[in-house]
Computed example of a mutant assay.
Amino acid sequence: MAGDSPGPIERYLQILEIVAASTRGLTLTDISGLTGLPKATAHRLTRSLVEAGALATDDTWHKTFRVGDRMWRMLQLGANPAATAGFAQIILDELAERFHETCYVVRLGRDNVRSIARSAPDQGHRLHVLPGEVLPPHAAASAKAILAYQPDDVVDRFLKEPFEKMTSRTVTSPSEVRAELRKIREQGFAVCDREIDDNVMAYACPIHMKSAGVIYSLGLTGPCTRLRQHPQDMWIAALKDAADRLAHMFDTQSETVGTS
């Protein structure tokens, strides 16, 4: 009824909305005053939201609350990929011009990993990782570079058998795929060595966002004969540098949206 007090879910949402709308963060007194909730109730609700990662707070006496990492991640996962594709294209064009290989950025979705931007060289063999293309989670370097940083329940959702055997080198054992994901997390990059095409390799690095973790990765792909002309470390160093630049761009964009 119209005169009823808001239920618990509505009260949580009220707090999240006003904190997200604030450019400087809010104290408990601010939250209580803006929502009309008793201070004791606001304290209990904000504590639960902090424990869940939806809010974050500093360690001062008059604590200031802001949007937490988990909430930022949710917002990023629900955001329009076009919002980040422009930044991605800048970096991808630079990489493609430098190395004359196809470069691309992919993004984690609810049930797949898709390319959101690509840059192909003007000359030579082009490998088409088109925007919107779904990448096989058990084989594509870019998909593995993202899944390696996801919680177990997300990995379980993506790694559903049977895995397609695309070449003789495609790994189709769930335990082997999971072992590879652990290795990727340790070393910080992923490789697809002829697992999708008999003549094609790819390298990929995760894009570590401060607020949302890893939901994007940056990849480079080309014929084995060309990529093997240079040491693996050269490709990985270039990709990691570009991934760091993209992470900064994406984080800056998130901060701008959050304070606009």
Rank of each mutant, 00 (worst) to 15 (best):
D30P: 02
D30V: 02
D30K: 04
D30S: 10
D30Q: 05
D30L: 05
S32T: 07
S32P: 08
S32G: 03
S32Q: 09
G33T: 02
G33Q: 14
G33H: 09
G33P: 00
G33A: 12
L34I: 06
L34H: 12
L34T: 05
G36I: 02
G36P: 07
G36V: 06
G36N: 07
G36M: 06
L37N: 07
P38M: 08
P38T: 11
P38E: 13
P38F: 13
P38A: 12
K39H: 12
K39Q: 14
K39V: 10
A40Q: 12
A40Y: 07
A40T: 13
T41H: 06
T41G: 01
T41L: 13
T41V: 12
A42P: 08
A42H: 06
H43E: 10
H43Q: 08
R44P: 00
R44N: 08
R44K: 10
L45D: 02
L45M: 00
L45W: 00
L45F: 02
L45S: 00
T46G: 05
T46F: 07
T46C: 13
R47H: 10
R47S: 11
R47N: 07
R47E: 11
R47T: 12
S48I: 01
S48N: 09
S48L: 12
S48V: 04
S48A: 13
S48K: 06
L49D: 03
L49T: 01
L49R: 01
L49W: 05
L49H: 05
V50C: 07
V50F: 02
V50Q: 03
E51G: 01
E51K: 11
E51Q: 12
E51Y: 06
A52R: 09
A52E: 12
A52G: 05
A52T: 06
G53I: 02
A54L: 15
A54P: 00
A54W: 11
L55C: 07
L55R: 03
L55Q: 04
A56Q: 09
A56D: 08
A56W: 01
A56N: 01
A56I: 00
A56S: 13
T57W: 01
T57M: 10
T57F: 03
D58M: 02
D58G: 11
D58S: 05
D59S: 15
T60N: 09
T60F: 09
W61A: 15
W61F: 10
W61Y: 13
W61L: 12
H62F: 14
H62Q: 14
H62Y: 12
H62T: 13
K63L: 09
K63P: 03
T64G: 08
T64E: 10
T64W: 08
T64I: 15
F65T: 06
F65C: 10
F65G: 06
F65P: 06
R66M: 15
R66Q: 15
R66I: 15
V67K: 09
V67H: 07
V67C: 09
